[in-house]
Design a protein around this nucleic acid. Structure first.
Lengths: 195, 195, 195, 195
DNA sequence: CATGAATGAGAGTTCATTCAT
DNA sequence: GATGAATGAACTCTCATTCAT
């Protein structure tokens, strides 16, 4: 983290992130990143040799998985319902934050990855998120906060819905109210009320 | 439909569809389509002047909106629950059919449209689908098949979830069972049971 | 003139003239002319096989040489001075008439012809104009209207100046007053006064 | 002037000048210049992005305006008549020098500029030349070398005539004698004799 | 005669990538 | 390490020209 090479790498990633946010994944060229970083063409190649490599480096810095967020929020007296709401609210922010948002680029990246046949990191992430939410639902059932016949299906449903909200926000746009309403509905299906 | 020019146009669209299915939207060049159609460079330009134009022509041929499918299935004795299930099953086919599937390309296209500031056709489609499903749910409530406090939120939730399933299928892949399970869950939240 | 083929040819030339006036010579394509004539691509080729051929046909229709104009104006009592003024006034109209004017295209055409080594028609025209004006000046000298040491040089000078006015009008623009002033000056050098 | 980029730019301009001299303005393509310079396609675009840009750079290197030539020739004992003759002789060289001559290309360029609506640099040049010659004529009148009623008209006439000579030389060709004769005639109209 | 679909050469332009400095 | 000039492949788009109908 301290050595010069790493600092430079991080500098590039930071600048490149802005470019991907603005232009998506496929439309970004090495030249765009060179321009954004204000370094030389050759200079960029010393650190990264393709936009794919750069984008993957950026993705690996992101850490928004359910476990991280939920664990950070856990305390002695936080109920599963509260934790779920905290997670959904965090996702809401990410969904609505149109500027600082790699969703569009990430989807493009994943489509391309799919075609190339390597989607496993995304799959791992999906499964881990489902598991984390399922755990929360099971805790809620035990503590009689939550009513749910099939925690696995419920957890999956939440993740699919969040994915759908993200896509919808990127393609046709969503307001905060629309996301709030959906969060309330999700909570409602589990027998929870957002006060 | 009969004249030569229209036949040729349709031929191009058919071939181009394959290219978009395989490569997504942004990665496709006019040359790719020229090669797929086995016509001359200039020849393609007689009919279409950009990949965007071609893609939009393909999209306008697609007719998978909820109203079309549901109306086609309505009969004297079809219950709202049955209609909803028919719609979801149709969507399931579309979600899983990875080969003959423009989802990935369409999402890319929509992202680009968004950046260019014209997402309204997609929005119209979204709203129309939500409405159609809401109508179904309301009918179900009247006929006491369905239990639902907020039909609008329920309908939106279904559309978001389907969107999420489509994306997930494209990015990390889904099996038929996984989709079935999700459909059952959706029906369950409305108090319906898939036998 | 009456047969269908000639009528069609003339129709094409008429439309093409407008295109050359608007766009010059080199910039004009066969397609431009096809579009202007509202005929088929192949149809144009039945009559002409290049823009050069068309332009040459147009040029051969033009008949603005000094002899034509001066002869048309000759009468029993027209003095050489009057004839000269009539010719210069005619040229003035041609110089200023920016819309209906092939000057720019003609110059481009002549440059290209020069490079190709066949400028003789233009040369013939130049010499004939010089001769016609020289004749006029000589008549004027005989009748003691005009004072001039070297009628040949004077005639040439007039033609060069008219050429210069034409070019200047096309490149940087000229007003009627500016051309009038120049005509007066030319007349003045021959001892004539424009009343 | 010394740095490599400027040297390369000048190298390109030098080679491009030859191409414009040979082919005029409109007919020249970026590829022609690439070939003449023996550099890569992309290489040329590092320095210039259109033939227009290149041609304008070449033009801005030219410095043949009347003021420059006349000022360079001024000395304690040079008479206005001598200065005028020096200027006309310089123009003669430019008019006759068919190889190293951008006249044709420049006229084409000016036609195009006219169509695009920006002819002002040429206009400025025209006016400045007229003024410089007018000053010379006025000096000549004061010192009683020159006889002239209307110095402004005379100066304009000279510029128009030179323009006409240039065009004529380019289109149908002129010999040195023909130009000499015209110069003598011009001088004669001002009451001057070329010895 | 007349049409206009079709071809393919060729121009413009952009970028990933290399390499001498 | 770092630079940025240079290359050349690839893509978009336009036309002159042909030819089956």
């Amino acid at each position: 983290m301290g050595d010069k090479s790493t600092r430079k790498k991080n500098y590039i990633l930071e600048k490149a992130r802005g470019v991907f946010q603005k232009n998506g994944y496929r439309a970004v060229t090495m030249k765009d990143i060179v321009d954004a970083c204000d370094i030389s063409r050759g200079g960029l190649y010393l650190y990264f040799s393709s936009t794919r490599e750069i984008f993957e480096a950026i993705l690996s810095q992101e850490d928004y998985d359910a476990k991280t967020i939920i664990d950070a929020a856990r305390g002695n007296d936080t109920t599963p319902a509260e934790l779920l709401l905290i997670y959904l609210s965090d996702r809401k922010k990410a969904i609505l934050n149109k500027k600082d948002n790699l969703s569009a680029a990430t989807l493009e990246y994943l489509f391309e990855s799919r075609q190339l046949g390597n989607a496993s990191p995304a799959k791992k992430r999906f499964n881990s998120d489902v598991n984390e939410i399922k755990k929360l639902i099971n805790e809620g059932i035990e503590q009689e906060w939550i009513v749910c016949d099939d925690p696995d299906a419920a957890a999956r449903s939440i993740v699919y819905t969040l994915e759908g909200l993200k896509t919808t926000a990127q393609t046709i746009g969503l307001t905060a109210d629309e996301v709030d309403k959906e969060i309330e509905y999700i909570m409602g299906t589990l027998g929870l009320v957002v006060e």
